[in-house]
Design a protein around this nucleic acid. Structure first.
Lengths: 189, 189, 189, 189
DNA sequence: CACTAAGCGAGACGGTACGTCAGGTCTTCCG
DNA sequence: CGGAAGACCTGACGTACCGTCTCGCTTAGTG
């Protein structure tokens, strides 16, 4: 049982090149060939370790996300949700950051296996953190006991995805606040 | 100024072939070449009238959607929302129907022009109908006056998109009802 | 039954490019990719009409050989054979001309179908011409009646191939004359 | 000045694997990678000791040829030549044996250095043996004194190569005999 | 008889070319 | 003259091998 003798330098070069090219050319025009060329790497080295450009981008995202997965708890549920929703809205509004999200989204729409990885490695931890905060809010009486936490987080994040996906309106801080307020109305005892 | 002498028979054959192939092979493996072959049509005929496979699929969808754009109004807002949300959830849950939605979504994520068309021709009319029903609800006192209708429809449809997009849970009738109930809590006076 | 709508300009460009590259780089380093690039042609266009680089070179050779297939008949058999054998030796001695022969030889050694084409389109006509001249020689009493003409032409050309193939000695005019004399000894009545 | 600590077991395995694969797949599809895999050997071990697959095959041939290099001398020149020419024809007619010859021939056509090795280690000794026998024939008056021995051996072997190389007729025992007879006609006093 | 350098298997690596596929354009010919 | 048919150039695909380069492990020959 020997560890795979993988070249870390190449791995880093590939992930970096992929993210650079992604912002330069967009996902559909991103090619494995170009990533390999930019990274100074043989194509085979990419195909040896990843199933395609989608998997490369996913790993680049996972690599760049710190495993913090914990929400602030100031005692004020509404304020804390505002913090996280504002951050999320800002992320989707930023062309640079949302480029990678767009790329991954495209790929997951037709790659079931990749979709699972995204869900388990990126999405679930994030949502779990929010659910934890909501549970704490229930303990302090700031949220109703009966609510379905899964549904609640969807109530918070779903509208953002909807607006982003369908380009159906601006993604501003004011929008984030309004969204939190409306959601709070639904879950406050 | 002559009207374009367009062959309706070819047009129908192309749209039909496109939808068939879409469910058979999935969007990324759908090719203009295959559509042309299946439809018994030259490739040029497709490129003459559409910008690419995305535009073909969009026209096929628009073609198949009746321009009803009106929600039932039984007087019971919750019940009427339940009807439309249940229908939407069912549509996303149906592999056959959601295949075309998935295809269009993929394409819009990287084609700004197409995204606009989708938004204006498919999405907005649907949401407008819901907003109309909500406005009627405000008139009868079943919904608060102060609510942002754009945000409210996102509260209703966003979670569905979120769950569908990220494959983060089942899309059932029960889910639809629960969603409507939670949203109603947020907007009831 | 429509004639294949083949682009003659491309065909010529490919054959020319192939011959150029052959003399520049040698057959093993000759690639379809390079031929396509030099000819300003898509690779597919080559693969559409030929089975590989070997077939291209063959067509180039066939194209450049005039269909003369007739030997001079001065009445002096020995002199006429000298003419053709000298020419053959000179051809094999010329690095430029023998490069294409070398290429075809390599390919035929492992491609049965190509070998047949070479035999039928290039070799047999040439040998047939010599056999015709030998037959005429028999009529004038300069060659024995009993000889096997197939074997006789091999006696004339075989040594040249042998020496060329195995690089086992110089290919000079003197060699050609000596060879003809020895062969004449074998077939003179 | 230490002797190279070369692993004889690996060497044997490589040569054996190479010959096996050669008959299975043909020379152009023979790869160093496959030889290494079949032999249970690292690629490096092959490249350490040989310049490529051509050199491996050559060594395998040299290894399998006994260094006998002497012709029988029964006193009857024609009969002795018949023996050796029949054997040569049989060798070229045998698909198994001629496969290695074909392989080496391909390689020598583009590798000058290898061609020299083949000529010096395989061809010349064989031809020298025939020349020796011819010289003995001159002594006993069965061959003319004036003939060029180099040319004479080419007269014997050249036609076989020609017929084999160009697949221009069958290689039978009868052919061998006919060839010897015609050549004898040329060199008998 | 232990040490130590080599040869060794394995296989990752940067490359090049393969032969295929589809893109989008252009040309020919038919109805 | 629109449309079918399909050749064309282009460029990326994913694969196969090339020849080089570490890795540890095994194995002599020496000191």
């Amino acid at each position: 049982m020997t560890a795979p003798r993988r070249n870390e330098r190449s791995r880093r070069a590939i992930l970096t090149a992929a993210l650079e090219l992604l912002t330069e050319t967009g996902y559909p025009d991103l090619t494995v060939e170009a990533i390999a060329a930019r990274a100074g790497v043989g194509k085979q080295t990419i195909y040896r370790w990843w199933r395609g450009k989608g998997a490369v981008i996913l790993e680049a995202m996972v690599d760049s996300v710190p495993p913090n997965a914990v929400l602030p708890d100031t005692g004020d549920l509404r304020a804390d949700l505002r913090t996280v929703i504002r951050a999320t809205v800002a992320e989707f509004a930023d062309p640079r950051l949302s480029a990678t999200t767009r790329a991954i989204t495209i790929e997951t729409l037709s790659d079931e296996a990749l979709a699972e990885q995204v869900r388990d490695q990126l999405l679930r931890p994030q949502l779990a953190a929010v659910k934890d905060r909501l549970r704490a809010g229930q303990a302090t009486g700031q949220a109703r006991d009966g609510i379905d936490l899964d549904l609640t987080v969807e109530l918070l994040f779903g509208p953002i995805y909807h607006r982003w996906l369908l380009r159906n309106g601006p993604l501003t801080e004011g929008y984030a606040d309004e969204l939190v307020d409306l959601a709070m109305t639904a879950i406050t005892p």
